[in-house]
């Protein structure tokens, strides 16, 4: 029993091994869903302009006429060798698409997560602590609205007010063309490259562009966070250990932070991992709204082109991200809660 903390590495190893079947299932689902969707890369690009025979010829060239199971086995085999192939519509390696656009999505996702955490968690704590007060009601309504409002709608309103009317922030894109041209790509994360370059004007420019998309996407998550933290705070504040802590005369602040909040974090962090999926899907919409040159924007383009290779590659990346982050979340949870370490 005393060696409970020693089993943490084994626990992590178990979870890492679990990634393999999870990713395999996800890949198969993505493969099937794309084949079930109407249309294919050929009809999407040149359909209606070429004769049916010419279309069939092109399909055969891409191997799309072979039986589904053959295509599937080849695809899985390639992925197992980490070969994601080239895009069908513009013939560039999928890995390059991910490299060139992943940085923008990463920047946006992290900034949005930051916004959601900084705004959502304290509001949730406050609402839970002062349950049913005017504060609680206002915060809850705010949470519901931010969660329910469509991302593109909030984005458009934000663009109208803060970019067009007030002119505080740029309407769209990740940076001005000048910045994009000036900053040499090292990590392919524009913000990081600008920092590495020591180019303060460029950093400022990217940050200004980042504000509206990050807040738009952050508010979506923020509503979820408020509700999650609030509900879990209500639970822990009712907890026997909280009453016992008060009976020991601990300062109310300490009771709130070390007892109620810390224990509320365990279920919150668990669900936080699942919210990464919401973050990524929200990122797709946000990128379309703000013309943010990330993977989400690319994904929409490739889906319209029915570019199997590109869509499979990007969604695989998204899926692996979600799985890896839930693994990290589990590890963090095990660090917070000693009871999980078995």
């Amino acid at each position: 029993m005393a060696s409970a903390s020693g089993s943490l590495p084994r626990y992590i190893l178990q979870r890492v091994l679990l990634i393999i079947p999870i990713v395999w299932i996800l890949l198969s689902l993505v493969f099937l869903l794309l084949r079930v969707a109407p249309g294919d890369p050929v009809t999407a690009s040149v359909g209606g302009r070429l004769a049916p025979e010419a279309l069939a010829e092109r399909r055969a060239a891409l191997g799309l006429d072979r039986p589904l199971w053959q295509q599937y086995l080849e695809y899985i085999g390639n992925v197992a060798r980490l070969d994601f192939g080239k895009t069908i519509s513009d013939n560039i390696p999928v890995t390059q698409v991910v490299r060139d656009n992943g940085g923008a999505t990463l920047t946006l996702a992290l900034a949005a997560l930051l916004v959601a955490l900084v705004v959502g968690v304290p509001l949730g704590v406050l609402a839970g602590r002062y349950r049913d007060s005017a504060r609680d009601v206002v915060i809850r309504i705010f949470g519901i609205i931010t969660y329910a409002a469509p991302v593109f709608f909030v984005g458009l309103l934000a663009q109208l007010l803060f970019a067009v009317k007030l002119g505080w922030f740029p309407t769209s894109d990740i940076a001005t063309p000048v910045t994009k041209f000036q900053v040499p790509p090292r990590t392919h994360i524009l913000l990081l490259d600008a920092v590495l370059d020591g180019n303060t004007t460029a950093v400022r420019d990217v940050l200004l562009h980042l504000v509206l998309p990050a807040i738009t996407l952050g508010l979506l998550l923020c509503g979820v966070f408020i509700r999650l933290v609030r509900v879990n705070m209500l639970q822990t504040l009712k907890g026997d250990y909280v009453e016992a802590a008060r009976a020991r005369g601990l300062p109310e602040r300490r009771v709130l932070v070390a007892y109620a909040f810390r224990n509320a974090l365990v279920p919150f962090v668990t669900v936080l991992g699942l919210q990464v999926a919401l973050l990524l899907s929200g990122a797709v919409l946000t990128e379309s709204t703000f013309n943010w040159p990330g993977l989400g924007l690319k994904l929409v383009d490739y889906i319209e082109a029915r570019d199997y290779a590109a869509v499979q590659g990007i969604i695989t990346l998204f899926a692996v991200t979600v799985v890896v982050i839930s693994l990290l979340v589990d590890v963090v949870n095990a660090l917070i809660d000693p009871r999980i370490r078995y």
Partner: peptide, 8 residues
């Protein structure tokens, strides 16, 4: 059983 903080 429930009176001690499980995380401490």
């Amino acid at each position: 059983l429930t009176r001690l903080n499980p995380l401490m």
